[in-house]
Design a protein around this nucleic acid. Structure first.
Lengths: 145, 145
DNA sequence: CTTGACCTTCCAATCATTGGAACTCCTATC
DNA sequence: GATAGGAGTTCCAATGATTGGAAGGTCAAG
């Protein structure tokens, strides 16, 4: 199987497969006499594993760890679980941040007439954060020093 | 005011201020005879505006638009609102994606003993997505397309 | 033998930010 | 006035993951 076929079979395009090989995430593929990379179904399994892990948002670095554990018959599931939960924690943190930002912007947008006139609470907030806050006059989002 | 003081006053570090200038996000600062950049309180206001917008996750490209509208006395608030709501939509999409991924991983982690033994539903899922799913067949993390 | 699809490598761009090197400048102290 | 240091200047490079293109070699079919 050449790289194009492996790409189709794994869902990772050829360019990216070469890149993954170059950074050592996947082993170097065998080559034909003319230099073409050759892939076995086992190689494709690794690629599919990597693909799935990327889809779940794992970084390349962590995928290296996961691949290592996957191939290690003496692994402990605790190690795998720890990596997964670390990732979950990070996801939850980012989600919370984005949730807060989205809500703030939604509130500002709600307070904005959205007409032809220039007056705009959104710009007022960017100019002077908190001052244009909808919900309360003074005790809103005191953050700064 | 030199760049270091402007950095402190705005919360954007000097390196980044120079970068913002180089890409045209902020106007070129005046210079002293010896070439040092000089900032007025008005310049700092722009920097603080940019800082706040970045904190709210706006891209540099959109911040350029927002700065333009901010400086335009004839702007319509509708334009500003549209940019903000576009950003909110994108945030909500990403949040939903991350939410799905996080939940999937949490379920897999829940199903994993996390002990010294190698058996691990998380790795099984990476190997063969869906097969190790706890709740049902059609409960994957399909996001794209 | 030519065409076209596919492979190869290398280099560059993305986005926003940070880091370093090499150099100049300002301020303060001796 | 010499000198030390901190802070300014420019330019180049790296980050993470991926994509794009150019320039050239290879394979299969017609």
């Amino acid at each position: 199987m050449n790289i194009g076929q492996a790409a189709k079979a794994s869902g990772i395009n050829a360019k990216l497969i070469r890149y993954y090989e170059s950074i050592g995430l996947i082993p170097e593929a065998d080559r034909t006499a003319s230099g073409y990379r050759v892939y076995t179904t086992e190689d494709v399994n690794i690629l599919r594993f990597v693909k799935r892990a990327r889809t779940l948002g794992f970084s390349i670095e962590r995928i290296e760890q996961l691949v290592g554990l996957w191939r290690d018959r003496n692994r402990s599931s605790a190690e795998v679980k720890a990596i997964a939960l670390k990732h979950v924690t990070e996801l939850e943190t980012k989600i919370a941040e984005m949730r807060a930002i989205s809500d703030t912007l939604q509130e500002l947008a709600d307070a904005c007439h959205g007409d032809h006139r220039p007056n705009c609470p959104i710009l007022r907030d960017l100019e002077n954060p908190g001052a244009a806050c909808v919900k309360g006059p003074s005790h809103s989002t005191e953050v700064a020093a």
